[in-house]
C-alpha cells in the first residue's frame, strides 16, 4: 500500500443533481478500498434530483475510520462537475493549497434563467477560482464526453483527470477494473475512453 499524498486525503466531488457525482465517488471509494485504504464516502443528496447542488466527500487514510464530513477548509482536492459549484465549495472546504479540477460547462440555475440572478462571466469565475487554490485544472469535460457520445460521461472524464494530477495512489487500470464490475461490457469501451481522455486533458 503506497503512502498517501496527505493523511487523511480528502476529496470533495460536487456538481448538480443528475451529473453522476455519487457514482464517481463510489467508483473512487471502491477502488481505494480494494487497494487496502480506509475509506469513508459521505453523500449528500437531499433534494439533489430536483436541480439542486449535490456533494460527495471521499476520505482516505491508512488509519482508523474517519467521519463522513471533511473538516472545514481542509479538502485536499475539489472535483467539480460544474464551474460555479467549484467556487461555492471553496467557501466551505478551500484553502490556498487546495487542488481544484472543474468541468468548464455551466449548468444555468433556474433563478438565472428567469432573469432574477446572473451567472458570472466564465473568465472572471476562472480567475477567482485560480486565485483561491494552489492548482487549477479548468477542463472541457462535457465537451469531451459529448465527443464520446454521452454528456453523462463527464464524471468519468473528471475521474481520469483526478487520477492524472498525482494526488491518488491509484492507477487507471485499478479504476477501470472497478468500473468493469459496475457497468456491462457494452458500456466499458466509452468509459475507458472517457477515463483516458480525462488523464490526457489533465497532463496535456
Amino acid at each position: 500500500m503506497k503512502a498517501l499524498y496527505r493523511e487523511p486525503l480528502d476529496i470533495v466531488i460536487t456538481g448538480v443533481g443528475g451529473q453522476g457525482n455519487v457514482l464517481a465517488s463510489q467508483v473512487l471509494g471502491r477502488t481505494l478500498l480494494q487497494a487496502g485504504y480506509t475509506v469513508t464516502v459521505g453523500e449528500t443528496y437531499g433534494l439533489s434530483q430536483r436541480g439542486g447542488a449535490v456533494m460527495s466527500q471521499v476520505r482516505v487514510s491508512t488509519g482508523p475510520a474517519l467521519g463522513p464530513l471533511i473538516p472545514e477548509n481542509q479538502a485536499t482536492a475539489i472535483v467539480s462537475l460544474e464551474p460555479l459549484e467549484a467556487l461555492r465549495v471553496l467557501g466551505q472546504y478551500g484553502h490556498p493549497g487546495v487542488v481544484v479540477l472543474t468541468n468548464d460547462r455551466p449548468l444555468i440555475p433556474l433563478n438565472v434563467q428567469s432573469g432574477q440572478d446572473r451567472y458570472p462571466d466564465l473568465d472572471q469565475l476562472k480567475q477567482a477560482i485560480a486565485g483561491l487554490c494552489g492548482r487549477l485544472y479548468w477542463l472541457p469535460a462535457t465537451e469531451a464526453a459529448f465527443a464520446l457520445g454521452a454528456p453523462i460521461l463527464a464524471n468519468v472524464v473528471m475521474l481520469g483527470a483526478l487520477l492524472a494530477c498525482g494526488l491518488l495512489p491509484l492507477s487507471a487500470a485499478q479504476v477501470e477494473a472497478v468500473l468493469g464490475g459496475m457497468f456491462p461490457e457494452s458500456k466499458m469501451a466509452a468509459n475507458r475512453l472517457a477515463l483516458a481522455k480525462g488523464q490526457e486533458m489533465a497532463t496535456g
Binding site: 436541480g51 439542486g52 460555479l84 458570472p120 472572471q124
Partner: peptide, 8 residues
C-alpha cells in the same frame, strides 16, 4: 459571483 441554485 455565486448565485443561489434554486430547487425546481
Amino acid at each position: 459571483l455565486v448565485p443561489f441554485r434554486e430547487f425546481g
